[in-house]
């Protein structure tokens, strides 16, 4: 039994002959915040969508919590104990903040086809607890559709945590947020990792966030993994500097 929540081996995916991701391997251990970075078109989204089940890999294996996850549908990946947040927050706009989280708990308890109980009281306490965790319990009764964007992102995080995941996949968790909000969001993520002992894989464009917060960083370029290490190692990696400063390697 390893402590890895995610193991990716030789992952590859092509679209119409163009390699979007090729031969990518990495691990993510419990309690770690792992950032995946790279210029546009480097294959981050593809890689992310292969792990979360949106895409099927051509080649390679994905192991989540010791179970093979290649080719599973997103909803089956979730059942392995994976929570997700999206770059553009996806929430249920016609429900209250509390109901959004209750909804996720309903699915966790496999109650979604029940026609007898009434939702408002179901799973309420647990959902409120999650809202307290992400710091928006005071807005629990507002419609999700009218919240400020930063708050919707928090709701999303609470929803993603509703199945007690051991692995959290966050696609640009701070996109669309102001600088202060970004730091708060990542501080929150760090504290969740610590208290719940989970692993988090995230993509991010804000380098302050990436280098300030993550435990490890993997760098993709043209679909390949070009560097991996601690923030300091990656910052000083010659290859990474070339990619980001836009100079082609000599």
């Amino acid at each position: 039994m390893t402590s890895n929540v995610l193991e990716v081996r030789q992952l590859a995916k092509s679209f119409g002959g163009v390699k979007a991701v090729s031969n990518v391997s990495f691990d993510l251990a419990r309690g770690q915040l792992l950032a995946m970075i790279g210029p546009n078109g480097a294959g981050k989204s593809t890689c992310f969508n292969l792990i979360n089940g949106q895409l099927r890999p051509d080649h390679g294996t994905i192991t989540i919590l010791g179970k093979k996850a290649n080719g599973l549908k997103p909803r089956d990946v979730w059942k392995l104990g994976v929570g997700r947040t999206f770059q553009i927050a996806a929430s249920f706009g016609s429900m209250t903040v509390l109901e959004n989280v209750q909804m996720a708990r309903l699915s966790y308890h496999r109650q979604t086809t029940s026609l007898f109980k009434s939702v408002p009281r179901l799973n309420r306490d647990h959902a409120m607890e999650l809202l307290r965790l992400v710091g928006i319990e005071d807005q629990y009764n507002r419609a999700c559709g009218v919240l400020a964007y930063g708050d919707v992102k928090r709701v999303e995080l609470a929803v993603a945590l509703a199945n007690d995941p051991k692995l959290l996949l966050m696609d640009e968790p701070t996109a669309g947020m102001g600088p202060a909000e970004r730091q708060e969001m990542m501080a929150l993520t760090s504290s969740i990792i610590e208290t719940r002992n989970i692993g988090v894989l995230f993509t991010e464009h804000d380098m302050d966030v990436v280098f300030g917060r993550s435990d490890r960083i993997i760098v993709l370029n043209r679909g390949e993994l070009v560097a991996e290490g601690t923030p300091d190692e990656v910052r000083n990696n010659r290859r990474v500097q070339e990619i980001y400063l836009g100079e082609e390697p000599v």
């Binding site: 210029p39 546009n40 400063l245 836009g246 100079e247 082609e248």
Partner: peptide, 8 residues
């Protein structure tokens, strides 16, 4: 718009 400075 660019991210590639040497090109710019």
């Amino acid at each position: 718009a660019e991210q590639n400075l040497s090109f710019a």
